[in-house]
């Protein structure tokens, strides 16, 4: 075939005549070397300030300690003590309960709002404005957004006053503030955007013609949603779930400020140990939390190739 590929119009080069020598190109870095230089600073910072510190508390979790200091050792006592204390399981159970409730509510809100923004809003200017309205609070202080609920939910707060003013209730509702309810409300307030963003991103990649095709094929609104929209937004749902879940499991501020001491979080228990300078047991509980979160995230990552989703 290579013979017949010779163009008919072009005269043949005399036999044995080689192509002129290549002009050598100047020295160039290999592409992988350029990439390494470009990601070098990121790798340095993440290794030094994330990987090494994590390794540090992994090591320290096996150390011994007393009131005066911490001593290099290799013992499992910290873990044994932690895993034989009922309080550990209580606090994990309580955090998991919060995490699942918040996950369910933010998923419901996030999916529906993302669906509304992507498929129902017709003008792109309105869509951008609404999306910004949802996103902007995320860029403001979480602490302020948390304490903003205090005058709203309190015994004499705006919510109770409104309900009483409307004659709906006789006496103020007490369970609103400094309660698990307040914690959940605040979490939802803080983290729903983490669901909306990834899901909206997934939904906006769906060709609207697919939905029209499904309707033309006679699928009901509900079937279209279950058979087409939800499967195609799976990656966004998984990504949002990872973000919301890890945020709740890693929180200590909201529980502290909003539960009124009724609930503890994993991290706030840990913070108490840190303040008491009991670093080895604190390290051990940190390690257990890290492993726990890592397992949950790894489980959710099985649903979605995060890397393919982000880097394309």
């Amino acid at each position: 075939m290579s013979a017949s590929a010779e163009p008919a119009t072009a005269a043949a080069r005399p036999a044995g005549m080689a192509a002129p020598a290549r002009r050598k190109r100047r020295f160039r870095l290999a592409p992988r070397a350029i990439s390494w230089l470009q990601v070098g600073p990121l790798a340095f910072i993440l290794i030094t300030f994330f990987a090494l510190p994590t390794a540090t508390f992994l090591v320290v979790s096996f150390w011994d300690y007393d009131r005066v200091g911490i001593y290099p050792d290799f013992m499992l006592d910290n873990y044994v003590e932690l895993l034989t204390t009922p309080a550990t399981y209580r606090v994990y159970l309580s955090s998991l309960k919060f995490a699942f409730i918040v996950w369910g509510v933010t998923l419901f809100l996030g999916f529906n709002i993302a669906h509304f923004l992507v498929f129902h809003v017709r003008s792109s200017a309105v869509r951008t404005a609404l999306f910004l309205a949802c996103a902007i609070p995320f860029w403001t202080s979480g602490i302020i957004r948390t304490i903003a609920w205090i005058p709203f939910l309190g015994r004499n707060g705006a919510f109770n006053q409104t309900l009483m003013g409307a004659g709906l209730i006789e006496a103020p509702l007490d369970f609103l503030l400094f309660s698990p309810f307040a914690v959940i409300v605040t979490y939802i307030h803080l983290f729903t955007l983490l669901m909306i963003g990834p899901i909206a991103n997934s939904l906006s990649k769906i060709d609207p013609a697919l939905l029209e095709a499904a309707r033309d094929a006679g699928a009901s609104r509900w079937r279209t949603m279950v058979d087409i929209v939800i499967p195609l937004s799976k990656t966004g749902i998984a990504l949002g779930s990872i973000l919301v879940f890890t945020q709740v499991m890693g929180d200590f501020f909201v529980v502290k400020a909003m539960s009124g001491g009724q609930s503890a979080s994993i991290v706030s228990a840990l913070a108490t140990e840190i303040q008491a300078m009991q670093y080895p047991p604190a390290s051990a509980s940190a390690m257990i939390l890290v492993v726990f979160v890592a397992l949950m995230v790894a489980g959710m990552m099985r649903v979605v190739d995060v890397r393919k989703e982000l880097v394309r």
Binding site: A19, R22, R23, R25
Partner: peptide, 12 residues
């Protein structure tokens, strides 16, 4: 190889 105006440019 690729030649342009009889010059080998393959690596340029």
């Amino acid at each position: 190889d690729i030649l342009i105006h009889d010059e080998n440019v393959t690596d340029l």
